[in-house]
Amino acid sequence: MGTFSISRNRYQKIARISLILLAFIIVTGAAVRLSGSGLGCSDWPTCENDQFVAEIDDVHAMVEFVNRVITGFVALAVMIAVLGSLFRKPKRKDLILLSIGLVVGVIVQIIVGALVVREHLPPSLVIAHFLISMVLVWNAVELDYRSGLTLEETKRSSKGKLQKLSGLLVLCCSFVLVTGTIVTGSGPHSGSESQETKNALEVTANTADISVAGFEVERLPFDVPDVARIHGVSMIIFLSLMLAVLYKIRKSQPSSLPQAQNLLVAIIVQATIGYLQYFSGVPALLVGFHVAGATLIWILALRLHLSIILPKDGNHSVVLSSSAK
């Protein structure tokens, strides 16, 4: 009787499911905040002091509870990823370490999530919660991409001008994410707005007129227009750098061109949504699309960078010749 093992292709499917769930829970977490359900469950890990499941007729509590249930599925997926890396044939140390990183990250997220509820949604903790999610997505993208490579391919890392430029692109993307969280932490949709604030958001069309005085929870002490301009400038820099990367890819590594074009389109759409939400009074639906877009762009930027520094066999010879230029 043979020992249990997991093939390379099957393990990559496991890694891909983990990535999808980690990205999905970012969007559902945003839905909790945008629906004002951040304090729908006043306790953790139970919803209320003596009640684990939320009341079916309490919309805010149920939204928060469903998000917690999804967290459970994410935790299960990353545990399977760890077990899968141990039974994968051939076994790879880099995949084991990356899968363990997912488990550690999810545990940290659960702890931070509990603190977010217990401290009544302080923006610093909410921002940390989101950024840790993005680090987890980074980890999952690495696991997903590397699981599709052979061990020999992972050791043939390419270094050159394009590789450095793509690394700078990822760094710039992370800065855009950070500035975006500051805008979010300074403005409306704190996760538990008062009814007066919600009514004001429905009638105002000018983001600059929004006051944080009616919020039930703390907000960052920045003017939304000021931090939004900083975020907008960072996005323009990111887009400019993306155009430079695209030009370099066309010349030296055309195999990565489809991924670069997808990222460029996503950036343009994301920027359009960003300006629309700002000048229309930040409606919750557009903010939700913006969060989903940010997650997608982060994934695409990371995958583009990995395709450049760790090309697969069919593209390796092209990269070697371009790196020498």
Score class of each variant (00 low, 15 high):
Val170Thr: 04
Ala81Lys: 01
Lys159Thr: 14
Cys172Lys: 11
Leu165Met: 11
Glu218Gly: 02
Thr204Trp: 01
Leu171Met: 09
Ser186Asp: 02
Ala77Ser: 15
Leu76Val: 12
Pro188Arg: 02
Ala128Cys: 07
Arg92Asn: 06
Asn206Val: 12
Thr204Tyr: 00
Gly101Arg: 04
Tyr145Glu: 15
Thr179Phe: 08
Ser192Gly: 04
Lys198Trp: 07
Leu86Asp: 10
Ala213Met: 06
Thr197His: 15
Asn199Arg: 09
Pro122Asp: 03
Thr154Gln: 14
Leu165Asp: 00
Thr181Ser: 11
Cys172Trp: 11
Leu97Arg: 12
Lys155Tyr: 10
Arg88Ser: 02
Gly187Gln: 11
Tyr145Pro: 09
Val106Gln: 04
Ser194Val: 08
Leu86Thr: 11
Lys91Ile: 02
Ala77Phe: 07
Thr204Leu: 02
Val117Phe: 10
Leu168Trp: 10
Asp144Tyr: 14
Leu171Asn: 09
His120Met: 14
Pro90Tyr: 00
Ile96Ala: 04
Asn206Glu: 08
Val176Cys: 03
Leu76Ser: 06
Pro90Phe: 01
Val108Leu: 11
Val212Pro: 03
Lys161Gln: 14
Ala140Val: 03
His120Gly: 04
Ala200Val: 11
Ser190Pro: 04
Phe215Ile: 03
Ala208Phe: 05
Arg88Ala: 06
His129Asp: 07
Glu202Met: 10
Thr154Asn: 10
Ile107Arg: 00
Phe130Thr: 13
Leu95Gly: 09
Leu95Ala: 09
Leu143Pro: 04
Gly113Phe: 07
Leu121Arg: 01
Lys93Leu: 12
Met134Tyr: 13
Leu97Val: 13
Leu83Trp: 06
Lys155Ala: 14
Glu218Gln: 12
Met79Val: 11
Gly180Thr: 05
Phe130His: 12
Val178Gly: 01
Val137His: 05
Ser190Gly: 14
Arg146Cys: 10
Ser133Gln: 13
Val178Thr: 04
Ala81Tyr: 03
Ala114Arg: 07
Ser85Val: 02
Val78Arg: 03
Phe87Asp: 00
Phe175His: 03
Asp94Asn: 06
Val170Phe: 08
Ser147Met: 01
Val217Lys: 07
Leu83Asp: 01
Ile111Trp: 09
Ser194Phe: 04
Ser194Asp: 08
Glu153Val: 05
Leu171Lys: 07
Lys155Gly: 04
Thr150His: 12
Val135His: 04
Leu136Glu: 15
Leu168Ala: 10
Leu136Val: 15
Lys89Trp: 03
Val183Asp: 03
Val183His: 03
Ser192Thr: 06
Leu149Phe: 12
Ala81Gln: 02
Ser174Gly: 12
Gly167Phe: 02
Ile127Asn: 06
Ile110Pro: 05
Ile210Thr: 11
